[in-house]
Design a protein around this nucleic acid. Structure first.
Lengths: 235, 235
DNA sequence: CGCTTCAATATGTATAGACATATTTGCGAA
DNA sequence: TTCGCAAATATGTCTATACATATTGAAGCG
């Protein structure tokens, strides 16, 4: 390691934790011991230890000391790439076919739609993402025109709705639910599958500053699509 | 905000980014400007800005300044809880039924098994996680006894294999693939489903220090299980 | 013996200054 | 005009010090 000293200290300690040399619960050296070992100031070892705390590898308690954390829940980073990028990265041609587009008011009997619309109108979109000329994913989306009014004029032949929103309504927060369903007759027809084929469904709701922006349901043929999540506990 | 000053500076800036007041590409104040505004030392504003860089909200370039990052790929944090904790949290009784257990050598025709075994033997496990007395997930697992030799003596009635590994082989890294399949005859029987029912499959491989530890395939009834991922871009 | 109090300890936050480093910008020379 | 070099600038790292704060462990007291 030739980089900054605080990084070297950090990776030295991280290596001992990941190798199991320091098991969970093991007491790590105090800052005083580390600064003596590395011959540096306290701020430098503090920076290293603080980073390890953020990474979830170390738990610190005043007076008691620093301890190797107990890995709890796996919190992997799931890669939900933009569908267009994903397809282009595979070297296939990409296209978005808009099947239906409507501007309407929220259905009063659907509380979720009412909340999404927030008193304004809704843009309802339905389309298919094609990869290499064949259906890759089916997308049904509701957009709050109150949250994204410019979207009413957008042309989705150029930029698909997801990418348009990412571009124009940045820094949103979202919650995705991933599940598996059997394709119904509509899904099967649009995705060129047999009815009943297993499909991966990503149901995503997106907010900005607490305001609901969009809700989308993407259906992928189960055999053609994998979501990949990589992780170390806390890394 | 009454907490530490660096945190207050951080959240002030974060709020302006998330609200859209500072769009992606916008140039944020320099450290000199911030320390004048907050009347603090440079180390303090630097700590705030460094945290925003780690969070992916800010990109900094020497001489040029600090800029609001362009949100790229959604990298949500996916919650893959331990199945046992998940079931217990729902208030249902949990049990793991071990259906098959074998110690064997790797199949020479399966390169993945050979790599996992790394010259040693493999422990093959098959079992069902029950929630409230009904099948919740089907698990088929291979464990490298070279990486986890103590596992040969473990009793999985007490602690299911996943939890056992988390406890004894901490700080692993993993990759999960999430897909959807139609239940085959075996899956359907063990999970008490109709054949062909859509199931969510999590395929996970786990390493420690580059050494392959285990590979597990968990099959969940599609109708009974959702994976939930929450995220803001880079948060 | 149990309770309270107090001091020692290790971390948490912050300062003011210093030098290093990368990058932009502008000036001067080919 | 264009290329290349040098100065200005903003961040990156580090030091030495100081005081705040939470927690532990031990001393003191009823």
């Amino acid at each position: 390691m030739t980089g900054p000293l605080h990084q070297r200290i950090r990776s030295d300690i991280e290596a001992r934790i990941r190798s199991g040399e320091w098991a969970p619960g093991h007491r790590a050296p105090t800052e005083a011991e580390l600064l003596a070992e590395y011959g540096c100031s306290r701020m430098t070892v503090n920076k290293a230890m603080t980073a390890l705390v953020e990474a979830g590898l170390i738990v610190r308690r005043k007076r008691a000391g620093s301890f190797v954390a107990r890995p709890k829940v796996h919190a992997p980073v799931l890669n939900i790439p933009d569908i267009q990028s994903e397809i282009v990265a595979r070297g296939e041609t990409y296209a978005f076919r808009l099947l239906a587009r409507a501007v309407r008011t929220a259905d009063r009997d659907a509380p979720e739609e009412v909340e999404l619309a927030a008193g304004g109108k809704l843009l309802a979109l339905e389309g298919v993402h094609d990869a290499g000329g064949r259906p890759f994913a089916l997308e049904r989306r509701l957009v709050s025109l109150k949250a994204a009014p410019e979207m009413e004029a957008a042309d989705f032949a150029r930029v698909p709705p997801g990418a348009w929103l990412l571009e124009h309504v940045a820094w949103t927060e979202a919650e995705s639910r991933i599940s598996a369903v059997n394709a119904d007759a509509d899904d099967a027809r649009l995705l060129a599958l047999d009815e009943g084929a297993a499909c991966l469904v990503v149901d995503r709701r997106t907010w900005r500053e607490g305001q609901h922006v969009t809700r989308v349901r993407q259906v992928f043929p189960g055999e053609a699509y994998d979501l990949v999540a990589r992780f170390g506990p806390g890394a």
